[in-house]
């Protein structure tokens, strides 16, 4: 304890014509159980009240606070300074549009992503107020939940070489979402409907297996497994189509 921490923080306020991208340095005394949430809040309140960054739940649940911490995307609120060296470099997530300093516009990106993969249960049934719910195996419910745990933080996208090179690549998060609905018996989409959404070079066949996504995901989603399963499924469905196998 009692280290002096040095923060190098990317600064740029696009709304201010006088602002140019640069790095500002701040010093801070480290305290017990200090997270980047505490540190950044302290810097804002005591040193520079114009410093922009995003926190919401500060409990690793909402996904608002993803940033590049010493080179790697992660949730700032669940990063303890104790796990970092005394010099800490913070940058905004790439790919997403910069709002200012460490703050980026993930909302627009994710809304678009959700629209593209049609992230909802597709069904021809209508809800019956009186009827008992459809039964489901608890283990299946838990499997679905395992994929539903994604907090749309954008770390996987920021860490993906493909997504960094190619703007139209949907990213692991979108493919995980599709995998979630494919698993769900309530969604009546057929294999070829899913294929249309994700069986492309912007989708699963654009993924080069870099596994940055898998390794940075702060919620440890099984991205590698889901991408593998998806590629094989989509691949087979194309082959079946080729040989007209139903």
């Amino acid at each position: 304890m009692g280290r002096k921490l040095k923060f190098n923080i990317f600064r740029y306020n696009p709304q201010d014509p006088d602002s140019v991208p640069h790095t500002d340095t701040f010093q801070l005394e480290e305290t017990e159980s200090m997270t980047l949430f505490i540190a950044l809040t302290q810097i804002r309140e005591e040193q520079d009240p114009s410093l922009q960054f995003d926190f919401c739940c500060r409990a690793g649940i909402c996904g608002a606070c993803a940033m590049i911490i010493n080179g790697r995307p992660n949730l700032a609120c669940k990063t303890l300074t104790d796990d970092l060296p005394a010099e800490i470099t913070l940058m905004p997530l790439p790919i997403f549009k910069l709002i200012g300093d460490l703050s980026v516009d993930t909302g627009t990106w994710f809304r678009e992503m959700n629209e593209n993969v049609e992230s909802w249960v597709h069904t021809s049934k209508t809800f019956d107020l009186e009827a008992e719910e459809e039964r489901m195996d608890n283990s299946l419910a838990e499997e679905i939940y395992e994929l539903e745990r994604c907090v749309e933080c954008g770390c996987c996208v920021a860490a993906c070489g493909t997504a960094n090179m190619r703007e139209d690549f949907v990213g692991a998060v979108a493919m995980n979402r599709i995998a979630r609905f494919m698993m769900d018996p309530r969604d009546q989409r057929t294999g070829s409907e899913y294929f249309e959404v994700i069986g492309t070079d912007e989708g699963i066949f654009g993924c080069m297996g870099l596994l940055g996504c898998e390794d940075v995901c702060p919620k440890q989603l099984p991205l590698q497994d889901q991408l593998g399963i998806l590629r094989l499924k989509m691949g087979w469905s194309a082959i079946k189509h080729l040989f007209r196998i139903k």
Binding site: V121, F127, E133, E134, D137, N138, L140, E148, D184, R186
Partner: peptide, 14 residues
């Protein structure tokens, strides 16, 4: 139940 219909993976009776 409506939320279940919309897609919540509620835990179920085992």
């Amino acid at each position: 139940r409506e939320m279940a219909f919309w897609g919540i993976p509620w835990n179920r009776v085992v």
